[in-house]
Design a binder for these strands. Sequence first.
DNA 1: CGCGGAAGTC
DNA 2: GACTTCCGCG
Length: 728
Amino acid sequence: MKTPGDTGFAFPDWAYKPESSPGSRQIQLWHFILELLRKEEYHDVIAWQGDYGEFVIKDPDEVARLWGARKCKPQMNYDKLSRALRYYYNKRILHKTKGKRFTYKFNFNKLVLVNYPFIDMGSSGSSVPQSAPPVPTGAGTHFRFPPSTPSEVLSPNEDLRSPGGMFSSVTRRMARGSVSDCSDGTSVNSEIEEGNTGAAEERGERGVSGGGGGGPGGGGGYRSIIHPRLSHETLFRMYGGPSNPAGHPGSRGPAGHRIHQEPLSPFPVSPLPGPGGASLLAPPLSPALSMTPTSHLPYTPSPTLSPMLGSHFSFNPEDMKRYLQAHTQSVYNYGLSPRAFLQYPNIVIPHPHRPTPDKERGTAERAERAATAGGERGGERHHHPSLAHSAHHLPHHPHSAHPHPHSHPMHYPLHLGEEPPHMSPFKFKLQPPPLGRKQREGQSQNKPRQSSLSSGSGSMSSTSGLGSSLSFGSDLSSASGSGVISASSSTQSLSSAGLPKIKVEPISDIESEEEVEVTDISDEDPDERDEDYEHFSLRHSAASDHQQPNHRLANGTSAGQHQPHEEDLDEDVFKAPAPPPPALMPFFTSQHPHSSAQRGLPAVKSEPAEPGESNTSPSQTAATGAAQTKCIPLKLRFKRRWSEDQRMETSQEESDDKKVRPEEERERGRQSNGCMEMEEDGTGRGEGDSPPPLAYEGSLGTPLASHQRVSAELHRATAQLSLENKDC
DNA sequence: CGCGGAAGTC
DNA sequence: GACTTCCGCG
């Protein structure tokens, strides 16, 4: 069951970030739930189960009690708590797993975006921002619950940010959490907070954790202790975290909880990939990712994962920064709001469990698993298979130029400042979005994959990393998370259906590291999807020409996948949030575990969002098949996309959905103002805010400047891409 | 058990 | 805004 190291980490830090509730000071129920989930102590009461993000309340009364204690609402009961939970449905934070009693599922996407930016950029690499929701460790960016675990406190993200800044923010949050505690000793908070140790629950300890008191101090303490830049792994180790599942797998474990084996991590089965396990390196990918069932995709992409061998593999902070800056608005803006997702609908968050049979993945995963040894549990924690792969592969990569030995080649691009635009070695294969079904049907089979897109030399990538990344920019970026990019553009018209998903994979790990394939994977049906999705589709169609012929195409491969609404939704929900911005793309790429499987390349694939288990194969197919590859006017796409994004940022029009929308818009408004999510923390922001630090080479002092700069880069990249595509 | 409206609280 | 409380409905 639990993972050994789990102690705390079920979700990625970012998951804890309070997405929408900037204002809310009090602990929110979902945070509380997450907190409980991450603590082994409460596994008998509530635990992860089943799909990614899915959890079961084993003891409703107890959970209610705890919640009541936390909120000082003695009268709390499950009925009331569940009502509160139901309110999350509309917010898309949570949804009910139908047919399963007391079982709910988190919608990480919603959360992700918010956190995204911060996702570990840090060395830690926690990397997994997007996709892996559940990154185990949790260093949450901003907010964490009461800081329970040191790890959290330490969260890489924060580290990345500025030590100080993050800190403060964290502390604050912590403080908040603690504050909220009810006076009574029983307060849950305290219990939770203690979590670190786990056992220690109790209240007394709080101080130690710092949660209670206060904040800053506590947080600071941890921080001080740990170097900001420590890799997650390190942290994990410290905490017993992810990386070494092995270490603990058994430890905790009680076997079982009544309900599940799952440990803390949301991903049920995550297997940690071995590599990590093995070494420090092993990045703590989110288990989820690794786990991801195949059904969707192999989720690949986490941006961060870059394979760096050595150091952390996660994102480079820098990259993240760039990304952030670049997308400052876009991403941030999109932030939590569902819309954000809309933009990046394709991104899928992998489900932990569903194993996919994919051929491709299988390979990679197997290897990983093997490495992991076993552990599913281990897997959960952090290892991302992909990482492992990437790591392994990297060495092989010819990239001589690599500045960072560790970093994945993909990263290169990132260093825009330094590198000339063309430098980048990457080659991208672009696969055009799937043709319309009809086309697809006709062609799909025929086409094996056209890798053709790849420009011969990968010129694409060329542009500076940035370029490449940028190119993917908005649209792609979205994909990035999962690795999937929606290529909105497919010329074909998709119709409302949706965007096709495109995969961007680095194609050769070994061979040419840099190539990236972009495949259209989309399979989703907007309809099924949440409103957001719908919007999404709308947007695309309207905004871009992109309409793609069919989403279905993607589906096509995966088409079979429909699942019931719920699942679909779920799936959708879980889809990875925004893709990493262009800059990030590389990261994503590298990370891809599954994709890598194919070759071991670090590729980013986006899998169909669809959860449908059925998909798995299809999706893979799609991925692999990529057959669809076609030449797409990427340039146009990107450009448009970019334009749109910007536009969007500027004006938030959008159709709305239900309730959600309002929120989104609001958020946007705020964000647009320039505020990042972080800001509130204020402290956090200032200090740590990564963005600044990230700035491209610092050239961008201000976000705006950076943003512009990014835009420029993007355009440039786009142009190059277009050139590359010309072949087509 | 689960849903969601309605009203109320903080 | 985020619940909490109550309640009717399936």
